[in-house]
Design a binder for these strands. Structure first.
Lengths: 302, 302
DNA sequence: CGGCGGTCATGTATTTATGTATAGCGGCGG
DNA sequence: CCGCCGCTATACATAAATACATGACCGCCG
């Protein structure tokens, strides 16, 4: 290791990892294939190890390359965060804001809210990371996050928007065939949709309704989104946000009076971003949009 | 933001922040002051804001620059961590590699090669399966195999190392008693060592030298290893690898000019293992070791 | 089996970035 | 006040990185 390698090599390295070939990486970065190839050569020289096995249909990363990948990813997210920070301070509401939310929220709830936001501010770019793996606000992997648990960090600007109510739902078709349970006890005879693993709200459900533990589940999935899809497909009775089911005339809320889980919801932003117009605007839009959404959950169906 | 700025600009930026002047940063990075100045210019252009107030005795960071500093620090520590990880991983070849070879190769040829390999990589465990029943690489009964026939499987990484020459040999003691045959025809009167069953190289021998079929064999065994041992014991004249006999002063190569069978040799590894350092290292060692071995077969005896 | 689309490797020309040399500015101390 | 030493900015020559063009290889498909 004579001199530190150019940091650009790390970018090329990561892009090759992501795309699997020098050519694809070159297209991504607006460079050419020989250039990327030389970057990889130089980096291999610098670290003194082989990073890729070259073949005629792409590059295969070595174990070493896979070990280094997380660092390269961190470099990329940090560089992106730096740029976002820089551009966020320019008074106007434009540029990119990165929002992190759970899968269900990100896919089913946020899109209309974001649509309104972008209607109001056409120059605003939104990046939505819909994943149940939560991103780190402190390192600015995201600018704003919608969280289902109360954040404990101090340097965060936190706004609680209320409780999203969860309830048992099933497709009308399923109920026509199997009947509609009128009491919790009657659930026992039904095809139930359950979860693969314990998440926070599962634990809350078991605490509130210990009986759930003894139920037999006909279908299990680890994805909340797949769970919701299973309900819509008529597989059986499952738990989902009442606000999601309400607009869909085929979905029926079951045991509404006997069973409800409140899902506490927070919108969170890094303290230092509150002076950034674009982040403030997005933060406010998320808060108001989620407040409306929660309100709609409570309304009786039209 | 037209194109993403070079990540090297971040490094220059951070170094200027740390040292307070372009010149000092240039010294630190092994660059020159105009270069660092251009990097800062370019970065300011890219983020669209002034990062430093230039004065004749140094650069004064703006608030923006101070806001960006934490990200730049993260970049630096991450880049350093990446390099450290790389250097700590380098040369970390350890674990077990399972090698499959024929009995003769496994017992007579490979041990010195494996000894060198383990000398170079003390953490490497080698399992040697020396058997003429060939193990299935596809099912990973072995990681690497030395084969005497060209493999046809697709997902294998194959390297042909050349032909191992076979020839007639006998112990000096035997020849002193029975004389040394000078022509193929003279073999007829000798005690010959033969094989119990037809193997691939027997068929090749019969094809190249049909006369062998009519010879009378005084001793037969189904094991190539026992065959070789029989030669060394002075039972008679048999076929073995010239490279095995050469270092042994008691063994004499007979009819060297009239008779030779080339035994094609391949080193084979499952495709998916080529990114594993220990398998790569072992593979390369086998290839080189066998190339040397084959070269030694051709040399005239000292 | 031959064309096609994809890949990587290599050699050459050109653009780009860098180094060198120099000029100008400001502070500091004799 | 002047000389010295640090800094930045600029102009020009040089070195380095890049793009371009080409060739070879592999898998795919009609």
């Amino acid at each position: 290791m004579t001199a530190e390698p150019s940091w650009d090599f790390y970018r090329s390295f990561l892009t090759v990892l992501r795309h699997g070939s020098l050519s694809a990486a070159a297209r991504e970065l607006g460079l050419t294939q020989p250039t990327i190839g030389r970057h990889i050569d130089a980096l291999e020289e610098a670290v003194g190890a082989e990073l890729f096995i070259r073949s005629s249909n792409g590059l295969l990363p070595t174990d070493m390359a896979l070990d280094l990948r997380p660092y390269a990813e961190t470099l990329a997210t940090t560089a992106a965060a730096l740029l976002r920070t820089a551009s966020s301070q320019r008074g106007k509401v434009e540029g990119t804001v990165r929002i992190s939310a759970s899968e269900v929220i990100g896919i089913e709830v946020l899109p209309p809210i974001i649509a309104d936001l972008q209607e109001a501010y056409p120059g605003l770019q939104v990046e939505l990371s819909a994943s149940d793996a939560l991103e780190d606000l402190m390192n600015r992997e995201a600018d704003i996050a919608v969280r289902m648990a109360e954040p404990r960090q101090d340097a965060l600007l936190v706004r609680r928007v209320g409780d999203i109510p969860l309830g048992f739902h099933a497709h009308r078709r399923y109920l026509e065939r199997h009947g509609t349970p009128q009491t919790m006890a009657e659930l026992a005879g039904h095809r139930l949709i359950g979860f693969d693993r314990q998440t926070a709200y599962i634990r809350m459900m078991l605490k509130l309704y210990p009986v759930a533990e003894q139920l037999a589940y006909a279908f299990r999935t680890s994805s909340h989104l797949a769970h919701y899809t299973a309900i819509r497909a008529g597989i059986g009775i499952g738990v989902c946000q009442t606000g999601l089911a309400r607009p869909n005339p085929d979905l029926v809320h079951i045991l509404a009076d006997e069973f409800e889980i409140p899902l506490g919801t927070w919108v969170v932003m890094h303290e230092s971003l509150k002076t950034s117009p674009r982040c403030r605007v997005a933060f406010d839009a998320l808060v108001n949009g989620l407040l409306n959404y929660i309100r709609s959950c409570r309304e009786t169906r039209v």
